[in-house]
Design a binder for these strands. Sequence first.
DNA 1: GTCCGGATTACCT
DNA 2: GGTAATCCGGACT
Length: 195
Amino acid sequence: MDRARLLALLDEDVLLASRALLGWHLVRGERRARIVEVEAYRAGDDPACHAHRSRTKRNEIMFGPAGRAYVYFNYGCHWMLNVTAHAQEEAAAILVRAAEPLEGLERMYEGRPKAKRDEDLLSGPGKLAAGFGITGADNGTDLLNPKADLRLEPGMTPDRVLTDSRIGISEGIEHQWRFLDGDSLRWVSRPLPPR
DNA sequence: GTCCGGATTACCT
DNA sequence: GGTAATCCGGACT
């Protein structure tokens, strides 16, 4: 999976792109982590998506090109990192929920001073943003540009992908649009429910 | 394991 | 001016 292939998937189908995004590396300076958990959101048939109701100042990045960072603040204390998908009217995004720290863990602990174990560093969307120092200033970054400060790089594709309902929403819970690397469950934001 | 406060943004009335 | 928001961390049991 190279950048061109991921970008094509982002333009075509946010659900396939979400699966494909698992295993990619999120890189900033000396910090590097492998994405192990994501969620898909899309405007057309998904009331949980910020772009479902209307285009606003907050969500307008989602209406632009695919592969950009959509960063927003919520609950008064947490930044969230999304990757935009689709194009133009078909607004969609992929929320990056958790990653396995690979390099630059000392820098991640600086952003997450209360973390006690490596598993606490990036195991949640707010934690991940804090560990990478992601804020609204990163909104709109082209994550597939190899020269970008914050970017995506190809990594090891998971052998098996698990699905679940998305977390923290009230509508659209019937969709199994949470995707996890089945062999990296120690790094995810919350365990899968028993089934 | 469960509960509960947090403190900002931007959308809406 | 009100409120809801793709949640986290600390304090408990």
